[in-house]
């Protein structure tokens, strides 16, 4: 009986393998999209447009990373956008009551983390399906945001916040750098910590994870708290970008966060995940809308294009092994 010590990590045979292409669908799609848009409109890859695309993608990247943790456990967080809205409103209220920027930011993050924690607790302890609980939170959080803000936006004028959304290093705005740091930390968490392994194990087989003594309830609670916390962080970037804390519904952020995760090749059944995939997925979605706008395609066609791309990517992932 022979034991093969290790398989080579990469060989040319993989290029003929459909599952290889499926795993890299988002990256290949992004490259193709960039080439096509660049041919059709040479300003697409101008420094200015790249910078604005990256800034536009930052919030989505952060939400998609949070969504990835949840999806990796086999769940789904339908409340990410609403938690972000509630976090933004919390920010606005704190700011307008003179709490200052630092405390307002902390309020936004805390509001997100607490709502996420509630999601997790109800799902893990109440034994209710993820879908139902976060659907409820989607409605509850946006309702709470409307009540708290009395339906009115709060204008936030702060030089530091303005700096955050306009300044940066080279083509990378501060918000882009924040999103990049979030993605890197998330990557380390997933692949280099016990927590990450336990998240994947919980999604892969909750029964098996339990049998080895992993507290899967705690993992479930943790991933929803992470998703909420990141939604709170995204809220700060949203307020910085809009210049106001609005109780708006932000539904497109929810749909795009799930779409980015699917594009990134993360299985909605849980158990398999990368961070790079959803990040590239988020960039692809942003490049798609940006490119269509540059080409003067009516805004009405953008959701259609996004839907088309997402389903196409999902079809490709069927070939994943």
């Amino acid at each position: 009986m022979t034991t093969v010590a290790a398989t080579p990590r990469f060989n040319t045979g993989r290029l003929k393998d459909v599952s290889f292409w499926a795993e890299w669908a988002a990256a290949i799609g992004l490259v193709l999209l960039v080439i096509v848009f660049q041919i059709l409109n040479p300003t697409f890859l101008s420094t200015g447009n790249i910078a604005s695309m990256l800034v536009a993608a930052a919030i989505l990247v952060i939400l998609a990373v949070g969504q990835t943790f949840v999806v990796a456990t086999g769940g789904i967080d339908l409340s990410v956008a609403s938690m972000m809205t509630l976090g933004a409103v919390g920010f606005g209220q704190a700011y307008s009551h003179g709490w200052g920027l630092t405390w307002s930011c902390l309020v936004a993050v805390a509001v997100g983390a607490v709502t996420g924690l509630i999601n997790g607790l109800v799902i893990a302890k109440g034994r209710i399906t993820d879908f139902i609980v976060t659907l409820g939170m989607l409605s509850a959080a946006s309702g709470a945001a409307l009540i708290l803000a009395d339906g009115k936006p709060v204008t936030v004028i702060d030089t530091t916040l303005l700096q955050l959304s306009t300044g940066g290093i080279g083509v990378f705005g501060w918000t882009v750098l924040i999103a990049a740091v979030v993605a890197i930390i998330a990557h380390v968490l997933v692949f280099w910590t016990r927590f990450g392994t336990h998240v994947l194990a919980t999604g892969g087989s909750r029964e098996a994870a339990n049998a080895t003594g992993i507290n899967t309830d705690r993992i479930k609670i943790a991933v929803y708290a992470v998703s909420g916390l990141l939604a709170g962080l995204a809220a700060i970037l949203l307020v910085a970008r809009v210049g106001a804390a609005e109780p708006a519904s932000n539904t497109s952020f929810l749909l795009n966060s799930v779409a980015a995760v699917v594009l990134g090749g993360v299985s909605l059944l849980g158990g398999r995940a990368t961070i790079a995939g959803p990040v590239i997925g988020a960039l692809l979605l942003t490049a798609l809308t940006n490119g269509l706008t540059l080409l003067g395609v009516s805004q009405f066609y953008q959701p259609l294009a996004v839907g088309f791309v997402v389903v196409l990517a999902a079809l490709l992932t069927r070939f994943q092994k």
């Binding site: 392994t197 994947l200 999604g203 994870a209 080895t212």
Partner: peptide, 29 residues
Amino acid sequence: LALVEDLTVWQNLFLNRELVHKMGPFGLL
């Protein structure tokens, strides 16, 4: 069996007994 199919053989062998480099409260696998 209590194995997680999506994880590798070594990840399963060390599931919930992972070896880490300790760095204060944090540990990298």
